[in-house]
Design a binder for these strands. Structure first.
Length: 348
DNA sequence: GTCCAGGCCT
DNA sequence: AGGCCTGGAC
């Protein structure tokens, strides 16, 4: 069989119509690829539209404030993507005269663009013959060719890149790359793939040997640590509160949060005593818990146990690294989704 | 509730 | 190799 003929035939019958497939603008294609890293199409789509509306060109994005970019990214997760997006917009706008590099090797030098994204942009926007290897491609090739290498190991990617380079259509590399990814997303899915209607059923080693469930092989499991976050929602008579911008190399870098008491060990802490120690200058009427049950928020590598405490006080003095803001302005700041959802659940 | 998919950076 | 987020499947 000629692999790409079958694949492209499948694609022409089954492909999704997506806005970034209607354009040849490298800026829009780059934007879509960054948004779609680690993100489902359904979740990414509205963000793609919003970014293009707010920042129609790479210059608009380059000239934006980082806080505004993060605010628009709020809810998408992996916020380093937004910071790198902004950084690369500046590089392209100010150092490359607004022109994206037109080849894999140069694209790879930009922040936030790794091997997958460089290959996607190079092929889709510029027609370069370079195969993409994303999670879909790993799965499709591992199954059809019965490759049992552990895809969580570094060298395995080279093996799949080599295989994909053999398979790619020299005439239509962009079509091939989008086809293999759509095929993985729609037909050859991680769970319950649609083998009954699969055009590769006679070729697929995994199917023929009953190993669909075992492929691709991925052995690494990340260990999840528990972490206990107690957010302090200060509120004075004029409805001012404190926000802190996260800075350290940690989760949610450069997003906003309420002041927090943060532990990696579960220990009984007395909120009142702790607040008295950290904020001796603040006199409050009472402290009360705002959420009924501890909120569990699961990250890839941390399990967060979250409580919110209302600290009801007369006034809030200026304090280092604390931004005193009026509650009405709260939705102009970029928050992690768990804090955003909590804020929106409040009545005041 | 728990598990998992999805690329890049350091 | 480990850190980084969220939502959907089960």
């Amino acid at each position: 069989m000629i692999f790409y003929n079958k694949l492209i035939t499948w694609y022409l019958e089954n492909k999704r119509t997506l806005p970034w497939r209607e354009t040849t603008d490298p800026y829009a294609i780059w934007l879509s690829e960054i948004i779609l890293q680690q993100t489902r199409v359904a979740q990414g789509l509205p963000y793609f539209q919003a970014f293009l509306t707010h920042y129609p060109t790479v210059f608009d994005l380059a000239n934006a404030e980082e806080d505004d970019v993060l605010k628009l990214w709020q809810g998408l997760g992996y916020y380093s993507r937004a910071r790198n997006l902004h950084h690369t917009a500046k590089t392209v706008a100010y150092e490359l005269n607004g022109q994206f590099p037109n080849n894999y090797k140069e694209l790879l030098k930009l922040k936030g663009i790794g091997e997958y994204t460089a290959a996607a942009i190079a092929s889709i926007a510029f027609g370069e013959i370079v195969p993409v290897v994303d999670g879909n491609v790993f799965r499709v090739i591992a199954r059809i060719y019965g490759i049992t290498s552990d895809i969580s190991k570094g060298p395995t990617k080279k093996e799949f890149q080599l295989k994909a380079a053999e398979l790619i259509s020299q005439e239509t590399p962009a079509l091939f790359n989008q086809a293999i990814m759509d095929f993985g997303a729609i037909q050859c899915t991680p769970k319950k793939p649609l083998c009954d209607t699969c055009p590769f059923i006679v070729n697929c080693v995994a199917y023929q040997t009953n190993k669909i469930e075992q492929l691709p092989v991925k052995l690494t499991k990340t260990k999840v640590k528990s972490r206990f976050l107690n957010f302090l929602v200060f509120l004075d008579k004029e409805k001012n509160t404190y926000l802190i911008k996260r800075q350290e190399k940690d989760i949610w870098q450069k997003l906003y949060q309420f002041p927090v008491i943060d532990h990696f060990d579960k220990k009984e802490i007395n909120i009142q005593t702790t607040v008295d120690t950290i904020y001796p200058e603040i006199s409050y009427n009472q402290i009360k818990q705002l959420n009924e049950e501890t909120i569990i928020h699961q990250l890839s590598h941390q399990k967060l146990h979250i409580n919110f405490w209302l600290v009801d006080c007369l006034s809030l003095p200026a304090k280092k690294e604390h931004e005193k803001i009026h509650w009405q302005q709260i939705n102009t700041f970029a928050f992690p989704i768990v804090i955003h959802n909590f804020i929106n659940s409040l009545a005041f």
